[in-house]
């Protein structure tokens, strides 16, 4: 009887703590969000999630050919593109790629020189104000950690489950939805000049013109000769995955380490419990 009550209390307290810990996210994203965001199937979700190299390479292509003309990615270095767990370019490819760009260098002649793999991705604009001026007053946000700076709103009890599933793909889901969320504004919705209607953007009026159109980026067919569809859906999935990698380049090694750590802890806890039982066996307590 006492045992049962204790058990109840234990469960209650565990539940209470879990609930308390969980409360932040609700608030985090409860504000004035756009339409609910649908979850996509990402290769990098879950305990065994890894990035798909080909998808990251395609995403990089979309980023480079479309997004990078307005958006910076200050924290990404060229060398990152050949590091393990990323798009898997070779070092030679990255070196050649970097050489196509120029970066500022106070010690170089004329203050500029061709980039090397150690350099970071050069910004399309010299400063924020220049970026605004070129974009009708809106500042295109930096891409480096954008996939983690956006989240999705989950109603109760979904957000509680998120703690157990480790749902961390809200940013990618949001970016995907946003890129597919351009529509004609509903009747009566006032759009200022230079604004576009987007179903998922908070407030629905976004300063970015629809950046992608079917066929706007030409993918190189894979080794098997089967082409990847050149559609907005595919482009946005690829670039969302790429942005997730850019924000979290060590995700794969982190999850792999984590799996080993958790396995170890469970095993160790089992041994500790057995040892503790043995030790206490002779003591009434």
């Amino acid at each position: 009887m006492i045992g049962a009550i204790d058990m109840f209390k234990t469960k209650f307290i565990i539940a209470a703590v879990a609930a308390m810990v969980g409360l932040t996210t609700v608030s985090a994203q409860a504000a004035e969000a756009g339409a609910p965001i649908e979850r996509q199937n990402w290769s990098f979700a879950g305990i065994f999630g890894t990035y798909d190299e080909h998808q990251l390479q395609r995403g990089f292509q979309v980023f480079r050919e479309v997004c990078a003309s307005c958006h910076s990615a200050d924290l990404m270095a060229f060398r990152n593109l050949s590091e393990p767990g990323g798009p898997g370019f070779s070092e030679a490819q990255v070196k050649a790629l970097a050489a196509e760009y120029e970066v500022e260098d106070a010690t170089a002649e004329g203050g500029r020189r061709p980039a090397i793999p150690a350099d970071r991705w050069p910004s399309p604009f010299a400063n924020d104000q220049e970026a605004r001026d070129a974009n009708g007053g809106s500042l295109p946000p930096d891409f480096s950690v954008l996939a983690k700076a956006r989240g999705v709103t989950d109603p109760f009890p979904t957000w509680v489950f998120n703690y157990f599933t480790g749902y961390q793909e809200g940013g990618a889901d949001y970016i995907y939805a946003l890129l597919n969320g351009y529509h004609e504004a509903p009747e009566g919705f006032e759009l200022a000049p230079g604004q576009y209607y987007n179903e998922y953007f908070p407030g629905n009026a976004i300063g970015m013109a629809p950046p992608l159109a079917d066929g706007s980026v030409t993918y190189v067919p894979g080794e098997d000769g089967v082409g990847v569809p050149e559609t907005v859906e595919q482009y946005s999935a690829d670039v969302s995955a790429f942005m997730m990698w850019m924000a979290e380049p060590h995700l794969v090694s982190r999850k792999q380490t984590g799996f080993v750590v958790l396995l170890f802890l469970v095993l160790f806890a089992g041994l500790m419990y057995a040892t503790k039982r043995k030790l206490w066996a002779g003591i009434e307590h």
Partner: peptide
């Protein structure tokens, strides 16, 4: 290892 950002707030990545 599996949800390092879930206890934080997305806005802190801005």
């Amino acid at each position: 290892f599996f949800a390092p950002d879930i206890l934080g707030h997305p806005d802190n990545y801005i």
